[in-house]
Design a protein around this nucleic acid. Structure first.
Lengths: 132, 132
DNA sequence: TCTAAATAAAGACGAAACGTCTTAATCACG
DNA sequence: CGTGATTAAGACGTTTCGTCTTTATTTAGA
């Protein structure tokens, strides 16, 4: 059984999170945040992580800027959705419904959370019935 | 940034899935299913995977039986819940609510699925209000 | 009881993953 | 131009994980 690499590794995710917060940034500024009082060596680490994120199409490099700036091409919600789908694929034969059930049953939802969830479901009903 | 091992690897999961389906089984029978027309060498692979699952407390070994039988100590729903929590920890600051929202918004839920979800929410309301 | 087959137990091995680091080429700016 | 920063490409070491080897132990059958 072949090993499968992660979509986004933890170190890569740390960089991506900053980009989500900031919209776009340079290697230098990202490095200073991730490694405060860090040596110059960490710059290359962040550089490599961004290079890999770019290769995997999670990040876009702006070569017009100098120094280059980087920005996410994928939103946080997209990655969440992807992770959820992976969990469904491996544990629920690809179906997402069991994940929903698990979350509703397992997590201690507040009354407010339950209510907003109902609102969300009602909106979906409306969309389907064409009322929009 | 230190690397973190997976909770259950893919090869381990293949074994665990069989145990979930069957309740309990021996190495020999699991091996025959996972590697039909496989050589004798695969027996040791399954053996090792079970040993690791046992070490991680996902599986219990019954040493009274001969040959030893193995059974899950964790249900599928438990692992699903754990994976969901991991996703929440890494992408939602630990909160599960965003996962709920993502699933409801993103997945094409059928009318039946939406309805059963509402029933689930109503049951939770009842529990909280003490009617049960 | 003795032997052969099956199982248990422990460990080793290699490829890949991944975080990190090194080195050399390229660029902007005074 | 030359100095410092940035880009570019790659190497390295540790850990992970699927697999395989070897040896000890147990059961079943003659």
């Amino acid at each position: 059984m072949a090993r499968t690499a992660q979509d986004v590794t933890d170190a890569e995710l740390a960089v991506l999170q900053l980009l989500w917060d900031r919209g776009r940034d340079t290697i230098r500024r990202l490095t200073d945040t991730l490694y405060p009082n860090g040596t110059g060596v960490h710059y290359a680490t962040v550089q490599k992580l961004l290079e890999r994120l770019e290769g995997k199409k999670y990040v876009k490099r702006n070569r017009n800027d100098w120094p280059h700036s980087f920005q996410p091409t994928v939103e946080r919600a997209d990655l969440i959705g992807h992770r959820l789908q992976m969990t469904a694929d491996k544990l629920c034969a690809g179906s997402l419904a069991p994940l929903l059930t698990n979350l509703v049953k397992g997590s201690r939802l507040t009354a407010e959370e339950r209510q907003s969830l109902r609102v969300l479901l009602d909106e979906l009903d409306d969309e389907v019935s064409g009322k929009k």
